[in-house]
Design a protein around this nucleic acid. Structure first.
Length: 344
DNA sequence: AATGATGCCAACCGCCTTCAT
DNA sequence: AATGAAGGCGGTTGGCATCAT
């Protein structure tokens, strides 16, 4: 109470648009070391000219180590379709049932692929305009009152408070008429999907409906870090290219590892100071070469045309960050970004 | 080969909810 | 209980990539 309000995203002087590799590196380095207990303070402490929201989004949607990358599997797509039928555009809830996938990603997949697929299933005889025109019209549908599936769900989702239930949401919207109802009426025990929360551990004792699934795999794991008010004194870093594939490995081929609590294991889950966390941090620092010396002469600007960043990620090689560093294994953009001069 | 149309996706915006004081 | 800060969510948009003509 009573403090002057400082807008979350004071836009003055902040960077916008695509993230540069340097910014990514800085964000990763900071979060791996200190966690993200306070998004608003994070950019300042990490020396990023971004608003906290932007950092959060970037981390959640792109940089998190437990992100599963690559195309959606058929199973995942089916799951999305089913869950969308029940939940509507509750992307975060849907995402919580798909470890390693983000709400944004799911939303995009739905809007670009699945929506069409579902509507085609719904009306197989309906000759839609072919190709891109059809897609455009789909998009237009989403905004038109007489729209089909997506617009209905959109409306429903928009008008529903977050506390709604899946059933209610489906029931209150016109959505079912746009999706293959029978599809959803098969013996899918959606509750299993929605409540895959650990049986032994009550998910949350929060007043709000808990995230359908163990949500921390997608919602940010609050990493309690001893975050000072001062700018982070990032160490000079000499990163091995492989570290990014190692980090990626947390999501990797395997579905995100479920810990005892059923959550995706996020390295920074443990608070710094705990043994496990320390081990992790130390290990990571080693991998990152955080404790190693730096070769300043190897710092380099982005190789023109080489860094398509961000871009589609495939395993190790496709990882843009890896790619970025593979151009010069010992090159260290972090060196630049972590230098005190820049940090101040 | 050039140009325009469309697809895709990362990022932004604004609102809502929750938490802290 | 009231107020404000911060986080979270869903919708939308901008820009690049790809495809079709």
């Amino acid at each position: 109470m009573g403090r002057g309000r400082a807008p979350c995203c004071a836009k003055v002087g902040l960077n916008r648009g695509s993230w540069t590799p340097q910014e990514d590196m800085r964000l990763i380095a900071y979060i791996q070391k200190h966690g993200h207990a306070n998004w608003r303070a994070l950019p300042k402490q990490a020396g990023l000219l971004r608003c906290g929201k932007s950092c959060r989004l970037r981390w959640i949607n792109y940089l998190r180590p437990d992100l599963k990358r690559g195309n959606f599997t058929a199973d995942e797509e089916d799951t999305i379709i089913k869950l969308h039928g029940l939940l509507g555009n509750k992307w975060s809830k849907i995402a919580s049932c798909l470890p390693g996938r983000t709400d944004n990603e799911i939303k995009n997949v739905w809007n670009t692929h699945l929506k069409k697929r579902v509507s085609q299933r719904e009306k197989p005889g309906d000759t839609k305009k072919k190709g891109k025109a059809a897609d455009a019209s789909d998009d237009a549908d989403a905004h038109s009152p007489s729209s089909s599936a997506s617009s209905s769900t959109t409306t429903a989702a928009n008008n529903n408070n977050s506390g709604d239930t899946a059933g209610e949401q489906c029931g209150t919207s016109k959505e079912p008429e746009n999706v293959d109802v029978s599809f959803f009426e098969q013996d899918i025990d959606i509750s299993d999907m929605l409540v895959d929360a650990p049986t032994e551990a009550p998910l949350v004792a929060a007043p709000m409906p808990p995230s359908p699934c163990s949500s921390s795999s997608l919602t940010t794991t609050t990493c309690v870090g001893a975050v000072s008010d001062e700018l982070l004194d990032l160490p000079e870093i000499d990163i091995e290219p492989d570290i990014w594939s190692i980090i990626d490995g947390y999501g990797g081929d395997e579905p995100v590892v479920s810990g005892a609590d059923g959550d995706a294991t996020v390295p920074c889950t443990a608070s710094p100071g705990e043994e496990g966390a320390e081990w992790w941090v130390e290990n990571l620092e080693k991998e990152l070469g955080l404790s190693g010396p730096m070769d300043e002469s190897l710092a380099h600007p982005d190789p023109p045309g080489q860094v398509c960043y961000p871009g589609p990620l495939t395993e190790t090689e496709g990882d843009p960050v890896s790619t970025y560093f593979q151009s010069g294994p010992t090159a260290s953009p972090l060196q630049e970004i972590a230098s005190p001069a820049v940090l101040s």
